[in-house]
Design a protein around this nucleic acid. Structure first.
Lengths: 197, 197
DNA sequence: CGCTAATTTGAATGGGCACTCAACAAACAC
DNA sequence: GTGTTTGTTGAGTGCCCATTCAAATTAGCG
């Protein structure tokens, strides 16, 4: 029961998850082999299994980290600006990210949710992440209405959902590798469709 | 060179592709094993390989069939009604399809394009299918404008792209298993965002 | 400096995968 | 009927996958 001589792991768990995240994001779940993950993280199989149980567990941990990272990035968009400006910054960032030529810019949550639609654990985590973002959108929209940036009769919940649709549509559309101006035009169209005050 | 005694295959190529399509749509590419496909199609491995070369070739053939099927379904929406009504029918159909509880309702093209983003052949085919749909949207929008259903100043190309974003967003949002009323509300919001005359 | 409990190491393992092939069967020409 | 070409059959093949484990290594503690 008692443990005195504790040996701390030599690797940085966060860095490992970051690498694993990137690998899953690029190749998807099934196409990523444990050898890929071993190469990407620099850990040996035994250490990976000791830390995360198995490949599935590693994906879950990576999703968890992705969730945190995304929440941070989102908050950064809202910091110090009006709610509506924050939303605009958020979508401008997504458009810019989607426009870059690397295909790793896809949303890990969406990609994995599409691939592992049958897995209840993955589904739950994906839904939680997306739900949290939608709730954050709704909060921002409410605040925007309070500040007079949005029509007083607008329904924040409905519009938050609408923004989520726009977000996922934007990311999906970006798979066709359109130019950056097309993506920016889409974002502009999305904001034009909001009942701004 | 000369071939006289031809033996016709015993199976129905179209039915085989239909089954293969459904299997890929449910499980994705990597998670579908050749055994799955053998079971789904009823063919033996040798016949499958003789007909399609390999797993990748079978996916390509399935995508081709999906493309044709989707084109037919799309035209059915436009038959005998005004262009705008045709578009409404199309999106109502997608919403209804996405609302049903089976997870196999996802778009095969989108799912496969997300999973095999690195594969140029798959990418080309996906892009072609999506591009054709977008062009059909643009055509319908032009016709709607000509019939006075759409604002005269509307840009059909831009709006067609906007409908594609709405379409993919709708389908992606449906992964979270919202109720049918939410999906219908999204479609309503999409059409409200169009500059209808 | 042992002693103990933890991590690290990396070769080994068993299973399942995509794919093959040699024997067989059917269809047509003559 | 016979020959030839094609489709069918399904057990077999080798490879690569996720996972394991026993041995080596390291850190804390008296």
């Amino acid at each position: 029961m008692r443990s005195s001589p504790l040996r701390t792991p030599e690797y940085d768990r966060d860095a490992v998850l970051c690498r694993a995240m990137a690998t899953f994001r690029e190749k998807g779940y099934a196409a990523t082999t444990m050898q890929d993950l071993v190469a990407a993280t620099g850990l040996h199989p035994g250490s990976l299994y000791a830390a995360f149980g198995n490949k599935h567990g590693l994906l879950l941990a990576a999703l968890e980290r992705y969730d945190q990272e995304q929440a941070q990035r989102t908050e950064a968009c809202f910091a110090g600006v009006s709610p509506l400006t924050g939303l605009r910054r958020f979508f401008a960032g997504v458009a810019a990210e989607s426009a870059c030529t690397e295909p790793s810019t896809a949303c890990l949550v969406a990609k994995v949710a599409s691939e592992l639609g049958q897995d209840p654990e993955i589904q739950a985590r994906s839904r939680a992440t997306l739900g949290r973002l939608e709730a954050r959108f709704a909060e921002a929209l409410e605040a925007a209405r309070a500040e007079g940036e949005l029509s007083a009769v607008a329904n924040a919940q409905d519009l938050a959902r609408w923004l989520m649709v726009g977000l996922q549509g934007l990311r999906a559309y970006a798979y066709g590798r359109p130019g950056p101006e097309a993506l920016n035009a889409i974002v502009a169209q999305l904001f034009q469709s909001l009942p701004l005050a």
